[in-house]
């Protein structure tokens, strides 16, 4: 399995395609087996398919999926198997048959199985009970609100910014006017990796306006932020793993790509300490950067983050 890698950028669809392929293969195998008169009982087909899905999620997908999500997926898959095996009366009878046999068939084998279950079930229950009584040294699970709702406005260096309407003063076109379209056309491209556009290089000495501000934002980022957020902005900086949770990954489509620029401005300015009540348990060590950077510097860093990740800030028009 290690030789078959999930390709970055294609992973979500790749996973679905792999699963679809496996379903097609299973269906074909089942068809061929039944044609040759060696059909696998429906009961075992259902059980094996479910085991396959659970194993796929556990061992194929990397990095490991948290148990809560695997449990959810596993349960839904179980429902899917039930829907399949009970979709018509004949199949349902076939599926139930082995279970009914264990319950009341009068053969030696089934009697032995019944006895085995009689012994095994209490032991399994005992095992679960025993485990639940063992002292647990793991940290408790935290249901964190990653994007708490922002305030209507925020005050930075004595100036009030209304989050709904404020704009990044450096997101400008050559005429110096606020221009989303112009700046969005100059961010890096997202494809296999993130590639800078040839005519939009902030480190070109002649770069002016928006691109110059991106460069300045980049300099501020690499002087202050990259130690935690990483030089690829993926939340894996030098110090990242000293923290729990690790810093935000800006390259993920679920972070800055979902938010307005003013949200990021507010978060950078106020840091972890400025999180509202619903951000409990405030597990963030990000400093309130308004104590170290000017308002302009914060806006430029935000500009750079969007440029570098290739995401567009959310707008509401």
């Amino acid at each position: 399995m290690t030789s078959l890698k999930l390709v970055e950028g294609f992973m979500p669809m790749q996973m679905l395609f792999e699963l679809a392929l496996c379903v097609a293969l299973f269906a074909l195998t089942s068809h061929l087996l039944s044609k040759s008169g060696k059909a696998m009982p429906r009961f075992w087909q259902g059980i094996l398919f479910w085991v396959f899905i659970v194993s796929y999620l556990k061992w194929r997908v990397y990095p490991p999926i948290p148990f809560s999500v695997r449990a959810m997926y596993g349960f839904v898959s179980l429902i899917a198997v039930f829907m399949w095996v009970s979709s018509n009366e004949e199949d349902w009878k076939k599926f139930k048959q082995p279970i009914m046999n264990v319950l009341d068939a009068n053969t030696g084998f089934h009697k032995a199985l019944r006895t085995m279950f009689l012994i095994a079930i209490p032991i399994i229950l005992w095992g679960f009970s025993y485990n639940s009584f063992l002292p647990n040294l793991d940290e408790p699970v935290e249901l964190r609100t990653v994007h708490p709702a922002p305030p209507a406005s925020t005050k930075v260096h004595g100036k009030t910014f209304v989050l709904q309407t404020s704009q990044n003063p450096f997101r400008v076109n050559p005429e110096g006017k606020y221009d989303q379209e112009y700046t969005n056309a100059r961010i890096v491209e997202q494809s296999m990796g993130r590639l800078m556009k040839g005519d939009a290089n902030p480190w070109d000495e002649k770069a002016e306006g928006y691109l110059k501000y991106v460069r300045e934002g980049g300099e501020i980022f690499f002087q202050n932020c990259h130690f935690c957020h990483g030089d690829n902005l993926n939340g894996r900086g030098l110090h990242a793993f000293a923290f729990n949770p690790i810093p935000a990954n800006f390259t993920d489509p679920g972070t800055i790509a979902q938010l307005q620029e003013t949200f990021i401005f507010w978060r950078v300015s106020k840091g972890g300490i400025g999180l509202p009540n619903e951000g409990f348990p405030w597990a963030s060590v990000m400093p309130p950067w308004e104590q170290h950077l000017t308002t302009d510097e914060i806006w430029k860093v935000v500009l750079f983050e969007y440029w570098h990740t290739g995401y567009y800030p959310r707008t509401w028009d």
Partner: peptide, 12 residues
């Protein structure tokens, strides 16, 4: 969370 390397899973 540590095993996953961050709050967001790269696939899911």
């Amino acid at each position: 969370l540590k095993a996953m390397g961050g709050q967001q899973h790269p696939v899911l």
